[in-house]
Each structure stands twice: as C-alpha cells, then as structure tokens.
C-alpha cells in the first residue's frame, strides 16, 4: 500500500518533509544521545530514504530519543525529526520488530496499560508493573528511591483513577482499531 518506506513515513503527521533533508547533520550535532547511536538522526533519514525499513525499525537507536525536540527546533529545513522518531517507534512496535530492546518496550507498555486501566498514571504502580513484566529483581534497585519518595509523601499510596474510565478505555480501543499506529 506504500510505495516505499519514505512514502510510509510521509503518510504520518510530521513525516511529510523528509525528502527536503539536506543531510547537514544539525540534528545529530544537537542531539543529546546521538553520541550513543549507531545510526545518527541524519543517517536514519538516509536509511529511510534508501528504503532500509528493517534496519531502521530494528535499531535500538530509535528508542534512544529523549524527545527533547532540539533537532526539530534547529533543523534548517523544517523537518520534525522528533516526530519521525515517534513514527519509527510506533511502526517498530506495531510490527514487533524490536529484538534487543524488550525491556524498554515493556516499560512503555506497562505505562500504556496503566492509562487504559486507570486513566491516570502513578509512578509506584508503574514501577511495580514494569519490574514484574521484566525482572522482579528490579524492585530491589528501585526500592531505596521508592522508600524516600514514600517518606517525603511523594508516592501515591492509593492509585488515582477517574470517573469515566470507560470512556478513556473506549477511545483508546477505537484508536487502536482504526489502525492508528
């Protein structure tokens, strides 16, 4: 249904301008995590344009984006690279292409489950869920910090929720059905 990977990316809000990239590297040079990336932001654009879908979507690099929007703010060609990172992550998630980064996506999906369940997020339950999904030993790591938060009165003991939780569930489900990845 898409001509190629570029076409696919361009069909999402924020992805439409990637053909205008002049490969200047301002994005990479501005990115706080590019030093740890195998494929830098600029290079990811090249890879998309070279139709290397699997290489891109399997890459851990797309999960290293901190959503700081510096690349977007500085790109001389108006490319919204942060949005492109989001698009890439959603595609990788949809096609379940992440191999090495199960831990990361486990955290994301724990968060997402929590919103679906309660409508609001709370850190204590999120950490609990995440640890159980990945490795319960993690709880030990989070333990000391968690205790401090409790002592300072900064941890919700009773999980928050909202009245019309059904509605939130419904719109999330409908969004998913619409193929709204």
């Amino acid at each position: 249904m898409y001509k190629d990977f570029t076409d696919e990316i361009m069909s999402y809000p924020g992805g439409e301008k990637i053909m205008a990239c002049m490969q200047c590297g301002t994005c990479t040079g501005s990115c706080p995590t590019s030093h740890a990336m195998q494929y830098t932001p600029r290079r990811l654009i090249s890879l998309i344009r070279a139709n290397q879908r699997e290489t891109v979507l399997k890459s851990l690099d797309i999960w290293k984006c901190a959503s700081c929007y510096t690349c977007t703010a500085r790109c001389p060609r108006g490319i919204k690279f942060t949005d492109i990172m989001y698009i890439l992550k959603t595609l990788a998630w949809k096609d379940q292409l992440m191999e090495e980064n199960k831990d990361i996506t486990a955290f994301y999906s724990a968060f997402q489950d929590l919103i679906a369940k309660r409508g609001r997020m709370n850190e204590s339950e999120l950490v609990l869920k995440y640890s159980l999904k990945t490795n319960p030993a993690k709880l030990l790591e989070f333990g000391p910090l968690g205790m401090k938060m409790v002592l300072k009165g900064r941890a919700a003991i009773i999980p928050p929720s909202i009245r019309n939780q059904k509605q939130v569930q419904k719109i999330l489900e409908l969004a998913k059905e619409r193929g709204g990845e």
Partner: peptide, 18 residues
C-alpha cells in the same frame, strides 16, 4: 486523564492524539 506524555506517542500515533 493522562496526556500520554512521551510514552503513548511512541506506541500508537492515534492514541497519542486522542
């Protein structure tokens, strides 16, 4: 409800709008 922060837009575009 929760705005979805940086998490929802990483998993599902439409959910992150809704």
């Amino acid at each position: 409800n929760c705005c979805g922060a940086t998490i929802t837009p990483s998993l599902n575009q439409l959910q992150s709008q809704i």
